[in-house]
Simulated assay, not measured.
Amino acid sequence: MDTANIKGRLDFLREAEKLKSVLRSAHTSTGRTESTAEHSWRLCLMAIAFEDQFAQLDMLKLCVIHDLGEAIHGDIPAVEKNQHPDKSAQEKADLLHLTRSLQPGHRDAIMALWQEYEDAATPEARAVKALDKLETILQHNQGINPQDFDYGFNLGYGRKYTGADPLFAQVRSLLDEDTRQKMGAAAQDASAT
């Protein structure tokens, strides 16, 4: 590999490092705000944890790429997505900027993966979309959230994707049960104050 190609890839990796500092609206189990990179890591781990159920699908590349464009302009919380109709176009432009130092074929491959995910164009992309929603709900339920956190949001979030497969529906059912318990606990805490 020539030096210019190596330098381009290193520049890309330096730029992508910004994703570690992009904060989401979710909180960790210690109460710290979660980063997008941490979300992407656990999404990859979820894909590995359930890969025996989807052995014919290769999901890891999509898991890694799906939010990479957020390294430039940040994350838009799921509860605010309707307020940002240009989110997809912005994220695509940001990913093009992020991959600018890569050779065209490499950049095109990353962009194609992102577009595949964005369009839910393949069984892999639909599975990763479902896992993405389930990971977010799992984190919402596991995190130490502010007192005004809206757990009810979880109950409707991502149903289009999480209901598309019996396994995802089963996972969703368990997470919905957790959400209802969190809602009950939050209501008790609010009435105690």
Rank of each mutant, 00 (worst) to 15 (best):
F153V: 04
D58S: 15
L10I: 15
V128Q: 06
Y157I: 00
A120M: 01
Q142V: 03
N82L: 06
A190E: 14
K160H: 07
P85M: 07
A16V: 07
K87L: 12
L155D: 04
A127M: 05
I76P: 00
C44N: 04
D11V: 05
A49Y: 07
E118S: 15
R107Y: 03
F168M: 09
K129G: 10
G8S: 09
R159W: 00
G152W: 01
E116I: 05
K81C: 06
R107E: 04
S25Y: 13
H106T: 12
S35A: 10
E70P: 00
Q181I: 14
L19S: 03
S29T: 12
A71G: 05
Y157R: 09
D148W: 00
N82K: 14
K61S: 14
M111D: 01
G158Y: 05
D178N: 13
F153N: 08
N141I: 08
D94F: 04
F168E: 00
Q53M: 08
A89H: 07
K160V: 05
I72R: 04
G163T: 11
T36F: 02
S191K: 15
D75I: 09
K87D: 08
D11L: 14
L13Y: 07
A109D: 12
L175N: 01
F12Y: 13
T28K: 10
V64E: 13
N145H: 14
E70W: 00
I72A: 02
D52K: 14
F168S: 01
F149A: 13
L167T: 05
R14G: 05
E177T: 13
D94H: 09
A89W: 00
Y161P: 04
Y117V: 09
L95R: 02
Y157K: 10
D86I: 00
R24H: 11
F50T: 14
R107Q: 14
D94P: 05
R42A: 00
L113Q: 12
R172V: 03
Q147Y: 01
D119P: 01
A187K: 12
L19K: 01
Q170P: 01
S35M: 02
R126A: 08
A127K: 02
F12H: 06
A16F: 05
K18M: 08
M59G: 11
